[in-house]
Amino acid sequence: MLRGRVIGNVWASRRLDEIPSGAFLEVQIEGGATLIAFDVLGSGIGESVLVSTGSVAASWFPGAAPPIDALIIGSIDETAGAQQ
């Protein structure tokens, strides 16, 4: 699992029918590298996210696994761990 921040949208006006509804987002992961991750949560630019990669990302979807190798699986609360 990777931690990153959404830095942009990737628009795909045409894509395979096997890819479910969702968005492609550019994510900068810790260390500075970027990747394109599929998002079904509605994440936005500037949001900190958790990204699962590889076959685990594709296996989250029911039925036949779509050709997705990076999936945003959570939104990180910036105040997580703070005492209330």
Rank of each mutant, 00 (worst) to 15 (best):
M1Y: 13
L2N: 09
R3Y: 14
R3C: 04
G4L: 01
G4D: 03
V6Y: 07
V6A: 09
V6M: 11
G8C: 08
G8R: 04
G8Y: 09
V10S: 02
V10F: 11
W11C: 00
W11R: 10
A12C: 10
S13C: 03
R15C: 11
D17E: 15
D17P: 12
E18P: 02
E18W: 00
I19P: 06
I19F: 01
P20T: 03
P20R: 08
S21A: 15
G22F: 08
G22Y: 01
F24W: 11
F24K: 07
F24V: 08
F24D: 07
L25I: 10
L25S: 06
V27N: 02
V27F: 05
V27I: 11
Q28T: 11
I29K: 01
I29W: 01
I29V: 14
I29S: 00
E30G: 00
E30S: 05
G31K: 01
G31N: 05
G31T: 01
G32S: 06
A33Y: 13
T34S: 13
L35A: 11
L35V: 11
L35S: 10
A37W: 04
A37Q: 04
D39K: 06
D39I: 00
V40C: 10
L41F: 07
S43K: 01
G44T: 13
G44N: 12
G44H: 03
I45G: 04
G46D: 13
E47R: 10
E47A: 15
E47Y: 05
E47S: 14
S48Y: 09
S48V: 01
V49K: 02
L50D: 05
L50S: 04
V51R: 04
V51S: 07
S52Q: 15
G54W: 05
G54K: 06
S55W: 14
A57F: 04
A57G: 08
A58P: 09
S59Y: 00
S59C: 06
G63T: 00
G63D: 02
A64R: 14
A65D: 12
P66L: 03
P66W: 04
P66N: 04
P67R: 00
L71E: 03
L71K: 00
L71C: 03
I72F: 01
I72N: 02
I73W: 01
I73A: 02
I73Q: 09
G74Q: 08
G74I: 04
S75L: 14
I76A: 07
I76R: 06
I76G: 03
D77K: 13
D77M: 11
E78R: 15
T79S: 15
T79Y: 10
T79V: 13
A80F: 14
A80Q: 07
A80E: 12
A80G: 05
G81Q: 00
A82Q: 10
Q83I: 15
Q83F: 15
Q84L: 15
Q84D: 13
Q84T: 13
